[in-house]
């Protein structure tokens, strides 16, 4: 079947299989491998992308369901020359260890700050609770989100 979607600002027309997931479209067809697969069942958040402003687990979205929508992946956020403030904060706080969870974490934080620029600690934790990390203990990730929100108190 044919779908039309916008990925990182670029319009795409793709022929996909009915059972194909948005995650497969991004990784296998578009080679946007910054979106990771950690569980394939909507539990880990490694595959988080932003669809029409809201985060979704792309392993739980069929390609067909993305038809007509706008998707932002980690590749659409920033580059070495101009990092997104969330990416910059993750670097500066040391919130990256193995980095497998990082793209999903960054996108969840971005979506939160887009809809709520000055979130409280509680709100940050709830917004990030769908993203698992096995390395960092989340401590520096929370600090990074607070920093990105301009709320870090030294």
């Amino acid at each position: 079947m044919k779908i039309e979607l916008t990925v990182n600002g670029v319009a795409r027309i793709l022929e996909v299989e009915p059972e194909e997931r948005l995650l497969d479209v991004l990784r296998e067809r578009l080679h946007l491998t910054g979106t990771k697969e950690g569980c394939g069942e909507g539990e880990c958040g490694a595959c988080t992308v932003i669809m029409d402003g809201k985060t979704v687990n792309s392993c739980m979205v069929l390609a067909a369901q993305a038809d007509g929508h706008a998707v932002t992946t980690i590749e659409g956020l920033g580059n070495r020359g101009s990092l997104h403030p969330v990416q910059k904060a993750f670097l500066e706080e040391g919130a990256v260890q193995c980095g497998f969870c990082t793209p999903g974490m960054v996108l969840s934080a971005k979506a939160l700050l887009d809809r709520s620029p000055h979130p409280g600690k509680e709100q940050i934790a709830v917004a990030m609770s769908g993203n698992l990390c096995r390395c960092t203990g989340y401590d520096k990730i929370l600090r990074a989100v607070e920093r990105a929100a301009g709320e870090v108190k030294e």
Partner: peptide, 27 residues
């Protein structure tokens, strides 16, 4: 970035691969 890199041993040096990881480039 942000001037948090500093010193050598004992410094809060940022990991070089973190750039590739926040950008989704790390393979």
């Amino acid at each position: 970035v942000g001037g948090t890199v500093g010193g050598t041993v004992g410094g809060r040096v940022l990991r070089e691969d973190a750039w590739g990881k926040v950008l989704g480039q790390a393979a």
